[in-house]
Design a protein around this nucleic acid. Sequence first.
DNA 1: CTTACATTTAACCAAACAGTTAATTAACTA
DNA 2: TAGTTAATTAACTGTTTGGTTAAATGTAAG
Lengths: 108, 108
Amino acid sequence: MQDSLSQTFSALADPTRRALLARLSRGDANVSDLAKPFMKDMSLPAITKHLKVLEKAGLVTKSKDAQWRPCKLNGAPLKDAVNWMEHYRVFWEESFDRLEIYLKGKKR
Amino acid sequence: MQDSLSQTFSALADPTRRALLARLSRGDANVSDLAKPFMKDMSLPAITKHLKVLEKAGLVTKSKDAQWRPCKLNGAPLKDAVNWMEHYRVFWEESFDRLEIYLKGKKR
DNA sequence: CTTACATTTAACCAAACAGTTAATTAACTA
DNA sequence: TAGTTAATTAACTGTTTGGTTAAATGTAAG
């Protein structure tokens, strides 16, 4: 079993799964709706598996409506991931020189 | 070959690699310095491999100083990752009710 | 009760991943 | 030149990942 940050990042490390999240960000959808744009490229069970990864990471929740399984995006795990990354903001946001100054300031 | 966002996320999806980045955020270090805290748990070649993953993702750059390989953190790829996640901020930041309202507003 | 639809599970496979130990390369030092 | 240190490469292994096809499950509709 992985720590939850690792689970979140590895769930995001796949373009199909990111596309599923993007789709869900525009509204809830059941499995076959989610699968539709990918059916040229992969089978339905493949999508089921990707959704399971997203569910285990807590990024998607499924409910029941007759034979359908409406899926919902849950952003909470992304908050932790972004919080982790924010510690590194200085390493991309500041210019090189300002970064140098910042680091030298920290050492004192 | 993967897209760069997938590469970034999968590089981050490992606690050892995140710890290496955390160490580098406190200053440059060569390979054996970086490895030291992990030597109880894994071998030096394992660290070399983790560093290679981070290098391929563009998160770390190595230079040469005699037999040492000083490593430096490069935050740039994190910027793209955070930018991607920012699209989902509304899904963790707003309360459930406000999120509902927001989504209903978008549909019109 | 049978059929159709939505989804999942099972069984399998190839490729990638994360580690190992042993050997190798490269540079400094005595 | 011989020995030491830093790091990488090679070869191997077990596990995980991402996909497949075929079968099974569960629900609704005739």
